[in-house]
Write a protein that binds this DNA or RNA. Structure first.
Lengths: 248, 248
DNA sequence: TAGATTTGATTGTTTTTGAATGAATTTGGT
DNA sequence: ACCAAATTCATTCAAAAACAATCAAATCTA
């Protein structure tokens, strides 16, 4: 990895998130602390960033940032915990399917391994993945305005031509009897096909999704593993029929 | 492998990725380090690149590599004027192709007619179009991180299956002799195909694009109509070979 | 074939990198 | 508010990688 390459990546990350940590950069760029430190030094001298304890921050301010309130809201924290755990399952050289949805979106910030290919039907997901220079393929087709997910027959046809090592799927309801369900039939069709095309499939779902039934069935609970945060739920009855991975 | 051949390959790679490594070039071109070094030396002297430790980088900054902020604030009024005029050409029931790019993005706010279908390779475009509840199809495939445009063979295959009434294409350079040119070969391929698939094609270009030549040719100026704001340019010599529509 | 040009290997030098050290800063508990 | 532990920081140094310069062998050209 060349100096200028590293600098470009650092500036990109900085532009996107406003702050970068030395430790994260070490992982992302696969080099030593000293090198990162020297990079940050140099970029600071050139006026591209401001060094702070533990990393560096953007020198200018964007006004679209989330407030700390929004960031620390319980819901988002749960998604981050689940996202981090789910991302840790991804291994080098794998081909991943990433379903549209906020929990899967949270995964992206925690993807550490290099040389993976991610196929997704989420527009924001694809955009963010490409910011991280992760090899990204977005399904084509129609857009669902409310969720910015690609849906419809074209997307299905696109999806058909891929095979995945792991698929991470968002869901609206999980129920012992009715399995995993979601409100939109077209989104359900995509999820269903993605699970079929993948060697291993994981449902990511915070605790609010348990014991809920929605309109369209995506899969049975024994077709997949479920990544969740337990909270104060008792899921022993589910454990007989499916694998539950607890994120914490 | 001839010297000029190697130079061409090096410049190609450089245009594509912005940076090349000596070691990679050795493998790709199958020659010694010394030879690569000499090539880079020479190309630097001729002003085609800048040598850096470990390889070389592009000497100029691509327009597309400016941050979204910088881009959208650049020539914003011109883009709005051109966008408004271009959007007024769209008629009820038409199928439109909208190329990725900031000028075409500006068009979307001015689309008035209903019941149209828009196919696009721009992620932001698709997102914004769907916000307006315009029937939108996004091409699938790989993403170019800097411009958030869909590119590559999958996108081309997706694109092949559509026919358009009108295509609106962004471009980086327009020149009497070399026609319409753009820096990225993969983006050029998409533009080229879109023009082929469309009954009528319009280039949208503010005045900064005139009399510029970029890397890859997209089309001749007599293949398309050009929508621009004249400013203080004299384009009489162009008018013999192409249709120029003035936005004001 | 002779001369010119290009290439690849070798040399010693410079730059970059990663690890180690102790100093400075932040964090968490009292 | 204070102290102790844990991080992070700046500096130094040796190893590794990339560099420029040189020269003989290979290739091209007239």
């Amino acid at each position: 990895m060349l100096t200028d390459e590293r600098h470009a990546v650092i500036q990109n990350l900085l532009h996107k998130s406003g702050i970068v940590k030395t430790q994260d950069l070490m992982n992302i760029l696969n080099c030593s602390e000293s090198t990162i430190r020297r990079d940050l030094d140099q970029l600071e001298k050139e006026g591209y960033l401001k060094r702070i304890h533990g990393g560096a921050k953007r020198i200018y301010q964007l006004d679209e940032e989330l407030t700390t309130q929004e960031k620390s809201s319980k819901n988002i924290q749960e998604k981050q915990i689940i996202g981090k755990f789910a991302a840790s399952l991804i291994e080098e050289n794998e081909v991943i399917y990433l379903d549209a949805g906020t929990t899967t979106l949270a995964m992206i910030d925690f993807i550490q391994v290099g040389n993976i290919t991610v196929v997704t039907n989420g527009i924001q997901h694809a955009s963010l993945l490409s910011d991280y220079h992760i090899n990204t393929i977005l399904l084509g087709g129609n857009i669902k305005a409310s969720t910015k997910a690609m849906i419809g027959s074209t997307s299905l046809r696109n999806l058909e031509s891929y095979r995945f090592d792991k698929a991470f799927i968002g869901i609206n309801g999980i129920d012992q009897e009715f399995g995993c369900t979601t409100p939109d039939p077209e989104e359900a069709a995509i999820k269903k096909l993605a699970i079929e095309q993948s060697a291993n499939s994981y449902i990511v779902a915070d605790q609010s999704k348990w014991n809920k039934v929605n309109f369209v069935r995506v899969c049975d609970i024994d077709d997949v593993s479920i990544i969740t945060n337990l909270g104060d739920l008792d899921l022993t009855s589910y454990r007989e029929n499916t694998t539950i991975l607890e994120a914490k």
